[in-house]
Amino acid sequence: MELTEAAQEILETLWTKLKEAEVSEITFADIQCSPEDPPISELREHNLIRTSGNVLQLTTQGEEESKNAIRRHRLAERLLIDVLNAKHQLLEENACRFEHLLYPGMEETICTLLGHPKTCPHGHPIPPGECCDQTSDVDQRLVSSLIDMRPDELGKIAYLQSRQSKEIQKLMAIGILPGSSIQLIRRFPSYVFQVGNTQYAVDKSIAAAIYVRLERNENTHDPDNTTPGRRRRRGRRG
């Protein structure tokens, strides 16, 4: 289904308001449109929204479509920030243009490259896609959460998820900051990694919040680190 950019923007707004802010009713005034606007008719024609009087609602099909639109938008933001290093100030504008270039399939590739991020840089959730349930893509990632890294893999911290939480703030206070080099040392029984010259041990919930932009490291082979965790991952990869 080819939708115009304006129509997709409206879907995204409806998704954030209805599904995330849990607003019970959205009127045309809320989204600054009138029933006669072409994008509205376009959405109605595709059976994505229902209108009754002044109130707009998403159809089942419309929910699916708007979820995907939001997903593309937020993945685009992640891609711009984590891989292309765009400045935050420029983010919104570019992400909007960028997302419309993503089409189904490509969006999954990007999600995989980024290590299936759970939130956008603003902290809003990214709805999971089909690719997020599969784990057979270890070698295609550019960004990965710490729990999906292998011992001795190297990288730079791309971002910390859910920066608002108290724990993550403490991590930042002790020097685990985006941009720092990081190397995973072991995965079991806790995650141990090195940032700069300091080693840290964290549990799975914290490790899952640390996303790393991977750097390929060809010459490290370390027999010491053939831990159960590593073997398991190898098995899953095949």
Binding site: E167, K170, L171, I174, S190, V192, T198, Q199, Y200, A201, V202, D203, S205, I206
Partner: peptide, 9 residues
Amino acid sequence: PSFYMEVPP
């Protein structure tokens, strides 16, 4: 609680 700790040399 979640666990994080510096591991000094």
